[in-house]
Design a protein around this nucleic acid. Sequence first.
DNA 1: TTAAATTCCTGTAAGC
DNA 2: TGCTTACAGGAATTTA
Length: 287
Amino acid sequence: MPELPEVETIVADLRPHLVGRTIVRCELAFPTIVRHPEPEEFVDAVAGMRIESMGRRGKYILARLAPSRPFGPDFPTSGEELLLVVHLGMTGQLRLVDEVTPLAKHTHAVFFLEDGRQLRYRDPRRFGRLLVGTQEALLSARKMPRLGPEPIDPDFAAEQLYRQLRRRRAPLKAVLLDQKAIAGVGNIYADESLHRARLRPTRVASTVSRQSARRLHESLRESLEVAIANRGSSVDTYRDAWGEVGGQQEKLLVYGRAGEPCFTCGRPLSSVRIAGRTTVFCRRCQR
DNA sequence: TTAAATTCCTGTAAGC
DNA sequence: TGCTTACAGGAATTTA
């Protein structure tokens, strides 16, 4: 499923192709995939807009939009930037294709670009969502959460993670999955970084030492950055913007390997459920 | 306020 | 072989 490294890969791939392009129109095959505003308003809002820039916040894909034909010499006006927001949920895929590419099953939205290409949103399980609005509108309408810090941001300090962990009595794994605590970490990289840090996922977050928090901070960054370098993990249906698989799924240390031997000590990896998620770890290496 | 449980959804694989 | 059932999980919502 798409987490921070997978979303980062898609955004980096799309950016040079989409920035400067205009969305001529948008067609929705499954309107309820749009969560803000109403689907008809969404389609109207994106039509004729030019993509000014693209970025990522946590697992959210963000595109800044502006009218392709400015209203006047003073455009753009300040503070009212429109954002096109895509969250891929579990099985969401965003692909840039030419018009002759056959329409894949479960394609819920198509953005037609002025150069003839199409940006298609496909999502069999429909846990993903599309939104458009100003950042303030989306936040105040609670359509987007106020996300925690970006774990790969150079300014994200180990001490910051330590302070987050100190005030939570939930298991470490549950805190890592909480997007308001740290943005972008999902089930794969939570398990991977806890293993690298030799920390047990069930451990109550507030009991970790400053030294352990520092180790987890380091492991988080390493797990995510290695995964970005390998273009993400295609463990389920994840594909990049060209429909290609990533490479990280072959290098995962624990995720999806319950019962298989730990690469460090050889003991079979254990599996438990934490915060409703399957959690894989080594009982010997992770104390 | 926080944490846990529930819900949404379909493709896949295991089991009979 | 073909059917049924369990499972996968991000995040909003509900419950405790």
